[in-house]
Protein backbone atom coordinates (compact mmCIF):
# COMPACT_ATOMS: atom_id res chain seq x y z
CA UNK A 1 0.00 0.00 0.00
CA UNK A 2 2.99 2.33 0.06
CA UNK A 3 3.20 4.94 -2.61
CA UNK A 4 5.46 3.85 -5.42
CA UNK A 5 7.18 7.20 -5.30
CA UNK A 6 10.32 6.34 -3.46
CA UNK A 7 13.62 4.90 -4.54
CA UNK A 8 14.32 2.97 -1.35
CA UNK A 9 15.95 -0.40 -2.01
CA UNK A 10 13.87 -3.55 -1.92
CA UNK A 11 15.05 -5.92 0.80
CA UNK A 12 13.90 -9.27 2.10
CA UNK A 13 12.71 -9.88 5.62
CA UNK A 14 11.10 -12.97 7.09
CA UNK A 15 7.65 -13.07 8.65
CA UNK A 16 6.72 -16.17 10.63
CA UNK A 17 9.47 -17.94 8.68
CA UNK A 18 8.34 -16.94 5.19
CA UNK A 19 10.27 -14.40 3.08
CA UNK A 20 8.66 -11.04 2.44
CA UNK A 21 9.82 -8.21 0.18
CA UNK A 22 9.87 -4.79 1.77
CA UNK A 23 11.54 -1.42 1.31
CA UNK A 24 14.47 -0.60 3.53
CA UNK A 25 13.44 2.08 6.00
CA UNK A 26 9.71 1.82 5.54
CA UNK A 27 7.66 1.20 8.64
CA UNK A 28 7.19 -2.49 9.39
CA UNK A 29 3.41 -1.97 9.61
CA UNK A 30 3.43 -0.67 6.02
CA UNK A 31 5.43 -3.62 4.70
CA UNK A 32 3.13 -6.11 6.42
CA UNK A 33 -0.05 -4.35 5.29
CA UNK A 34 1.09 -4.28 1.66
CA UNK A 35 1.16 -8.08 1.75
CA UNK A 36 -2.24 -8.25 3.38
CA UNK A 37 -0.80 -9.08 6.80
CA UNK A 38 -3.15 -6.93 8.85
CA UNK A 39 -3.56 -9.40 11.70
CA UNK A 40 -0.56 -8.94 13.97
CA UNK A 41 -1.76 -10.73 17.08
CA UNK A 42 -4.82 -12.21 18.74
CA UNK A 43 -6.57 -10.72 21.71
CA UNK A 44 -5.90 -12.41 25.05
CA UNK A 45 -9.33 -13.66 26.08
CA UNK A 46 -11.38 -13.82 22.88
CA UNK A 47 -8.59 -14.78 20.50
CA UNK A 48 -9.89 -12.10 18.15
CA UNK A 49 -7.63 -10.81 15.37
CA UNK A 50 -5.93 -7.48 16.07
CA UNK A 51 -3.88 -5.16 13.90
CA UNK A 52 -2.09 -1.83 14.10
CA UNK A 53 -4.45 0.78 15.53
CA UNK A 54 -2.87 4.03 16.74
CA UNK A 55 0.30 4.06 14.59
CA UNK A 56 1.99 6.32 17.14
CA UNK A 57 3.41 3.90 19.65
CA UNK A 58 0.70 4.11 22.30
CA UNK A 59 -1.86 1.32 21.86
CA UNK A 60 0.56 -1.67 21.75
CA UNK A 61 -1.71 -3.58 19.34
CA UNK A 62 1.12 -3.96 16.83
CA UNK A 63 3.64 -5.43 19.28
CA UNK A 64 5.35 -8.46 17.77
CA UNK A 65 8.73 -10.14 17.91
CA UNK A 66 11.57 -8.70 15.88
CA UNK A 67 14.75 -10.77 16.05
CA UNK A 68 13.44 -12.26 19.29
CA UNK A 69 12.57 -9.04 21.09
CA UNK A 70 9.11 -7.50 21.51
CA UNK A 71 8.90 -4.41 19.33
CA UNK A 72 6.08 -2.19 18.13
CA UNK A 73 5.76 -2.58 14.38
CA UNK A 74 4.59 1.04 14.03
CA UNK A 75 7.91 2.26 15.47
CA UNK A 76 10.18 -0.23 13.71
CA UNK A 77 11.68 0.61 10.32
CA UNK A 78 12.41 -2.32 8.02
CA UNK A 79 16.00 -3.59 7.91
CA UNK A 80 17.22 -6.21 5.50
CA UNK A 81 17.09 -9.67 7.01
CA UNK A 82 15.00 -8.87 10.06
CA UNK A 83 13.06 -11.84 11.41
CA UNK A 84 9.51 -10.98 12.38
CA UNK A 85 7.22 -13.26 14.33
CA UNK A 86 3.63 -12.38 14.93
CA UNK A 87 2.38 -13.17 18.39
CA UNK A 88 -0.45 -15.58 19.11
CA UNK A 89 -2.86 -15.34 22.00
CA UNK A 90 -1.11 -13.93 25.06
Amino acid sequence: MAQETDGRPVVTISVDGAPLEARAGEMLTTALARSGLLRLRQSPRNGAPRGAFCHMGVCQECALHVDGAVRQACLTPVRAGMAVERRGVL
Binding site: T5, D6, M27, L38, P49, G51, A52, F53, C54, H55
Partner: peptide
Protein backbone atom coordinates in the same frame (compact mmCIF):
# COMPACT_ATOMS: atom_id res chain seq x y z
CA UNK B 1 -7.61 -5.19 11.78
CA UNK B 2 -8.09 -2.44 9.22
CA UNK B 3 -9.90 -0.20 11.69
CA UNK B 4 -7.47 2.51 12.75
CA UNK B 5 -7.64 5.87 14.43
CA UNK B 6 -8.14 9.11 12.59
CA UNK B 7 -4.97 10.60 14.03
CA UNK B 8 -3.34 7.27 13.21
CA UNK B 9 -4.27 7.87 9.58
CA UNK B 10 -2.55 11.26 9.63
CA UNK B 11 0.65 9.51 10.74
CA UNK B 12 0.41 7.06 7.83
CA UNK B 13 -0.20 9.86 5.36
CA UNK B 14 2.29 12.41 6.67
CA UNK B 15 5.11 10.25 7.86
CA UNK B 16 4.92 6.69 6.56
CA UNK B 17 3.76 7.60 3.06
Amino acid sequence: PGVIGLAAATVLLKSHG
